[in-house]
């Protein structure tokens, strides 16, 4: 379980996304952020060496 962010950090994160919510809702999101943060952290642990990473690419078509 990751740590609950400070109220200031939570407000800053939401403001960066352009989201403005009532204080009680910001507090609920802050309390539940530790449910979501580990999912993000789990993705940042490389499963493959950098040289073997699968690339997200684009395929041009006519």
């Amino acid at each position: 379980m990751s740590e609950i962010p400070t109220p200031e950090t939570m407000s800053l994160m939401l403001a960066r996304a352009g989201i403005s919510l009532p204080p009680a809702e910001v507090e609920e999101l802050r309390q539940h952020w530790p449910l979501f943060a580990p999912m993000l952290a789990g993705l940042r642990k490389p499963a493959l060496p950098t040289s073997a990473e699968l690339a997200v690419t684009f395929k041009a078509s006519r």
Partner: peptide
């Protein structure tokens, strides 16, 4: 509203990491 708010907190690097995963 609350689920979407969490979506707004996903960074570009998070999203690409998820697609690579």
């Amino acid at each position: 509203r609350h689920r979407l708010a969490f979506g707004g907190l996903v960074t570009g690097a998070d999203y690409i990491a998820a697609q690579k995963r």
